[in-house]
Amino acid sequence: MEGPLALVVGILIATGVYLMLARNLLHYLFGLVLISNAANLAIFIAGRVTRAAPPLIPEGLQVPPEPISNPLPQALILTAIVIGFGLLAFALALIAQAYKVLGTLDVDSMRIAEPIPPKREKSL
């Protein structure tokens, strides 16, 4: 199962990088979303993909009666999803605000913080 899933991670990252190469900020953000999902999937695979019971111990027992799946990667992914959700949502709001104020989503024309210096006359 790891092989096909790893392939999916690769495809997600390739698509994400392609989108991030665009000048348009929104494409860049969508690229980030894809790569963020790829990262989560990668953690999931790194925690070994197995067919097992959910990691719950029935009442009255101290240890699970049968092999359970590893809960830690799932906890990590959950945390990463929440954090990623927050960051990407913030980025989206920021881009919306920037579009309203700066009037463009083309990164090449965003030069307010780093203005192109005026050309100096060449002296001999």
Binding site: A89, F90, L92, A96
Partner: peptide, 13 residues
């Protein structure tokens, strides 16, 4: 609260 802050902010933008 966080999600609604975001939704309201985006709706106003």
């Amino acid at each position: 609260g966080a999600v609604l802050t975001l939704i309201f902010a985006l709706e106003e933008a």
